[in-house]
């Protein structure tokens, strides 16, 4: 029991005294994860819409691929990105391995299938007559996509947040492609693993609390948007 209390006390001290190293890691995590989620959303939302609405050969195969990607193990994503970015790999000349950009690529690879699959499912769940109605109103392609995406905005928002949740809490890929370099690629999850291995449970708890706070904050934001949309 003593160990637990000591760990909590140390975590509390680190958080309340504004430990610079911890908050730097938290900030880096937010930036990297936010960026990778944005990249995944930028690719995943149009792709999800296209798969749901478009009529093309292999549509079902694409959807199956995205659905399978929902369960993409972060370690596998990390492995694939590592091979690609390794110095002797196909993209090795870019020099991205063990940089924050490598983590962005790996995390985007994890989040994109989640966003594609949930977006496609949300759009396909809309009543078929709604698609017909929007086209019957004379909407061109851009406005059609915009109005349909607007109708599915809540599940789409959930898709993006699910993507964020998946990458902010993954550790395998970030460790593998980022290398957990202090001051460069160390994020909340990799730092937590490191501190636990060193027996610094107080620091690890402090990092864990920040990670939990981030996830809870995202949940609160989604709930807030849901409530606002219902009121509008």
């Amino acid at each position: 029991m003593g160990l637990i209390w000591e760990a909590f006390a140390e975590a509390w001290r680190l958080l309340t005294t504004g430990d610079a190293a911890i908050y730097e890691i938290a900030l880096r995590t937010a930036v990297i994860t936010g960026f990778s989620t944005s990249v995944a959303a930028g690719i995943g939302l149009p792709l999800g819409l296209f798969i749901a609405i478009g009529q093309f050969p292999g549509q079902r195969a694409f959807l199956s691929l995205a659905n399978a990607g929902l369960g993409m193990p972060p370690v596998v994503a990390g492995l694939l990105v590592s091979i690609a970015l390794w110095r002797s790999g196909p993209l090795g000349s870019l020099g991205l391995i063990y940089t924050p950009w490598a983590i962005v690529v790996a995390q985007a690879l994890i989040a994109t299938p989640i966003i594609v699959a949930v977006t496609a499912a949300a759009v396909m769940a809309l009543p078929p007559t709604l698609h017909l109605q929007v086209r019957a109103m004379g909407a061109g392609t851009v406005r059609y996509l915009w109005l349909i995406a607007r109708e599915a905005r809540l599940p789409i928002l959930v898709a993006v947040m699910a993507g964020f949740g998946a990458v902010v809490s993954e550790v395998g890929a970030s460790m593998m492609v980022g290398g957990n370099l202090s001051g460069e690629t160390r994020v909340l999850t990799t730092a937590t693993v490191l501190e636990v291995s060193r027996g610094n449970f107080g620091t690890a708890l402090a990092l864990g609390f920040i990670l939990l706070a981030m996830v809870i904050a995202v949940g609160v934001m989604v709930t807030g948007v849901q409530a606002r949309v219902r009121r509008l």
């Binding site: 007559t129 709604l130 017909l132 086209r135 109103m137 109005l147 607007r150 109708e151």
Partner: peptide
């Protein structure tokens, strides 16, 4: 299509 309008059995209203 912009010269026409269509009304379906389902009102097909947008969420607004």
């Amino acid at each position: 299509r912009r010269l026409t309008s269509t009304v379906f059995q389902d009102a097909g209203l947008l969420d607004m």
